[in-house]
């Protein structure tokens, strides 16, 4: 049987303790998961930004003569199309590279929309409590009860699919995680004495929230943001896969999987490659999120 690391020990201070910033930097550099995750995210972000410079072909140009060419490692493959071509003869590598842009921009956009809604509600509910808190809790339960994917599909279909609609709808349906965490954290913080000290010094609730509470929420918000980034990217891919998200000919990985599905028994790479791209991007975001959680944790586990 093991004793766990939740053990507390009132250790006396070291001679020269590190500042929070120094401590986090040191933990970050020692955290393999975080380094791998942020490495993946930075690389893919650079690919997205410089897509026109990197992509060997125009991702939209169709060519009936070169449809479904296999990748270079296949005996029939060629160096001209490293990862082959799709049903319309478009270069698959170029489409994958441009797909990074769609995934990352929708992920960032939707996670930001969710952040604005969730953090605002969470801080307000946690700080003011009472009926405000009851109302927000009720909204939370109702939101959780809504079948999110189904509603998103219906709304995107009805409103009409565009990248902005997809961002907006995914964002509006993904704020609960922010809410739950910031609400609990705000409830805890607002009962701490430094908030009472600020109030005693004449600070208004607004000043207390901006100056005392929000700075303490930032690490947790960043952690959730990275997780929500991954969740939003997967949500976009699912919608596009089901035909109610990004529409052709825009290169979205989810859409590419749907398009490759018809031929997947004979040309599995059409499905495998965009799926792996999604997997890599999301695992990068999740590793980064896990890492940030460990790095910013107050006691520093492990």
């Amino acid at each position: 049987m093991t004793q766990t690391d939740a053990f507390t020990f009132d250790a006396p201070e070291e001679a020269e303790p590190m500042s929070p910033g120094q401590l986090m930097r040191r933990r970050a550099l020692n955290h393999t998961g975080f380094l791998i995750g942020s490495g993946i995210i930075v690389t893919l972000a650079l690919i997205a930004i410089f897509a026109p410079l990197i992509a060997p072909h125009d991702p939209f140009v169709q060519s009936l003569s070169s449809r479904m060419l296999p990748p270079v490692w296949d005996p029939a493959g060629s160096w001209d199309h490293l990862l082959g071509t799709d049903q319309n003869g478009r270069d698959y590598l170029s489409r994958l590279i441009y797909g990074t842009r769609v995934s990352i921009s929708i992920g960032l956009g939707a996670a930001t929309v969710g952040l604005l809604i969730g953090v605002t509600l969470g801080v307000v509910a946690g700080y003011f409590g009472g009926w405000v808190d009851h109302a927000v809790s009720f909204a939370l339960t109702a939101q959780l009860a809504l079948p999110g994917l189904l509603l998103a599909m219906a709304l995107v279909f009805i409103i009409g699919p565009s990248i902005w609609v997809v961002i907006g709808i995914i964002g509006v349906l993904h704020w609960t995680y922010y809410l739950v965490v910031t609400r609990a954290a705000t409830q805890r913080l607002r009962n701490l004495d430094f908030v009472a000290a600020a109030t005693a010094s004449g600070a208004t609730p607004r000043q207390v929230i901006w100056h005392e509470i929000l700075p303490n929420l930032i690490p947790q918000i960043i952690v959730i943001f990275t997780f929500e980034l991954g969740i939003a990217i997967l949500a976009e891919a699912s919608l596009s896969f089901l035909g109610v998200g990004i529409q052709p000919p825009t290169p979205s990985w989810g859409l590419m999987i749907a398009e490759g599905k018809q031929a997947m028994f004979y040309r599995p790479w059409l499905v495998v490659l965009p799926g792996l791209s999604l997997f890599t991007l999301v695992i990068g975001a999740n590793l980064m999120g896990d890492g940030l959680r460990d790095i910013t944790a107050p006691e520093g586990r492990n």
């Binding site: 929070p20 004495d193 430094f194 009472a196 000290a197 005693a200 010094s201 005392e212 700075p215 303490n216």
Partner: peptide
């Protein structure tokens, strides 16, 4: 006119400042 001093010095200072 009046200022407080609290019991727990670990919670009376904002850790981010």
């Amino acid at each position: 006119l009046v200022q407080p001093i609290f019991q727990d010095p670990y919670s009376s200072l904002n850790p981010r400042r």
